[in-house]
Each structure stands twice: as C-alpha cells, then as structure tokens.
C-alpha cells in the first residue's frame, strides 16, 4: 500500500512540478483572496488582525478546492483514470498517494498564505507551534476529505461546480478548529485553549483517513 502511495504521490508531484499550476495559479489566487478580504474590511488594522485567522482558513479552503480539482483533472485527460484502475494499484495506496500529493501542495500554499496574512494584515504570530500544528492537522484533513470527494465527483460532467458544493460544508470543522487554534497562536494563548480544537482536528483526520482507505476503491469503481 505505501509503495503504491509513494508512487502515485511522486507522479502527481512530478506533474505539478512540470505544470506549476499550484505555484503560478493557486497560490496567487489565495493571495488575491486575502487582498480582497482586506479591501472589504477597510483600512483599519484592528478588524483585519481580529479576522485574520478566519480569513486565512477561508482562503485555504478556496485554494484547497482548486488543488483538489487539479488533482482530479490530471486523471481526467486521455483516460488516465481508467489507466490507474487497470494498473492494479492498491486503491488504499492510490487514495493515500493522491492525498499525500495534495497535502504537500497545501502545506506550501499555507506557508505562502501565512506570509500573506502577516504582511497584508499585520498579524503577529506569538505561538508558532500552534500555527504549525493547526496547518499540519488541517492539511491532513483537507487533503483526505478533498481526495475522497474529488473521487466522488470524478465521473460527473459538472464536477467543477459540484465539488465545492460537496466539499465545503464537510470541512466546516476544519475551518472552526483551525480558526480557533490560529486565534490562540496569534494571541499567544495557553495550549489549554487550543487543545480541544487540536483534538477535534486530529479526530477528524483519523476518521477521514480510515474512511478514505476503506471506501476509495469502491468509489473509484462506481463513478
């Protein structure tokens, strides 16, 4: 399973390295979204700093949708999805590989967006480990759920519009928990304020990792 996962992740990341879609399109889109939020909140720094955690995670969700759509569309060209099915890859390995590649891209995107939040909103990070923990746990959740729902929408002609509709409500716990942990990270709060939210993210990740490993194969065959 892990051999297949690394093989698929390597393939997806190689494709991304060649096409540079994440860096040249998705990351700039996230920065533009952060800029638009800043315009909407006005010139005062206080509301921007106060809203920075939530706005960061909303921007992350938007970029996640694009990253997942890209991950799905890579397999939609020239029957590549059928090629994957025919190859005899372990479906669990395929799921983990796709999710791993998306996660790697999201981590880079979140780093870019974090820098954007600091510079555009003037937010100061006081507990960096909380920010890192939120991003790592949130990324695992987003990548696994996104890969799962991406597979669900893969065989549908209107997948570009259906995917956000399916995905965004499901990842609301990540938005909530990530925002709370970021608030603690910006305020320099004690770990106890963030701990329940970290637990929520970890539980969310564990559930969707397990679900994905089990159901990705049947979903792939059914869609």
């Amino acid at each position: 399973m892990w051999h297949d996962a690394l093989l698929v992740a390597g393939k997806d990341l190689r494709i991304e390295a060649r096409s540079k879609v994440a860096l040249s399109q998705v990351a700039p889109f996230g920065i533009v979204a952060l800029g638009l939020f800043a315009f909407a909140l006005g010139p005062n720094r206080a509301p921007m700093v106060a809203g920075a955690p939530g706005l960061f995670w909303v921007a992350v969700l938007f970029t996640t949708v694009l990253a997942i759509q890209r991950s799905v569309s890579v397999e939609a060209v020239d029957g590549a999805r059928d090629g994957l099915r025919l190859s005899g890859l372990d479906p669990a390995g395929l799921f983990l590989g796709k999710a791993l590649a998306v996660a790697a891209q999201l981590i880079v995107l979140e780093a870019v967006l974090t820098v954007g939040v600091v510079f555009l909103y003037g937010a100061a990070i006081k507990a960096i480990w909380l920010i890192v923990a939120a991003c790592v746990l949130g990324t695992v959740g987003l990548a696994t759920v996104g890969t799962l729902y991406g597979a669900l929408s893969a065989g549908i002609r209107v997948r570009e519009t259906l995917l956000p509709f399916l995905l965004l409500p499901v990842v609301t716990p990540i938005l909530l928990a990530g925002t709370r942990i970021w608030q603690a990270g910006l305020a320099g709060g004690t770990p106890s304020t963030a701990t329940p939210w970290l637990h929520l993210l970890a539980a969310f990740d564990a559930v969707y990792l397990a679900v994905g490993v089990v159901v990705y194969g049947p979903i792939q065959e059914a869609t």
Binding site: K11, I15, S19, D78, G79, L86, S87, G88, L89
Partner: peptide, 27 residues
C-alpha cells in the same frame, strides 16, 4: 490484464519514459 484502449492513458506533463515507467511500476 493489459488493455490498449481508444485513449492512451498518458499524462501529458510526463515524458514518454516517465509514463512507461509509472505504468510498469504501478502494475
């Protein structure tokens, strides 16, 4: 089982050798 379908099952951003290598390793 190997299938030569209407579609070639290739990834446009990979080279010829990379495509063959991936399919063989995947199988």
């Amino acid at each position: 089982v190997g299938m030569l379908a209407h579609a070639s099952h290739l990834y446009d951003d990979l080279t010829v050798l990379e495509n063959v290598r991936f399919a063989v390793r995947a199988g």
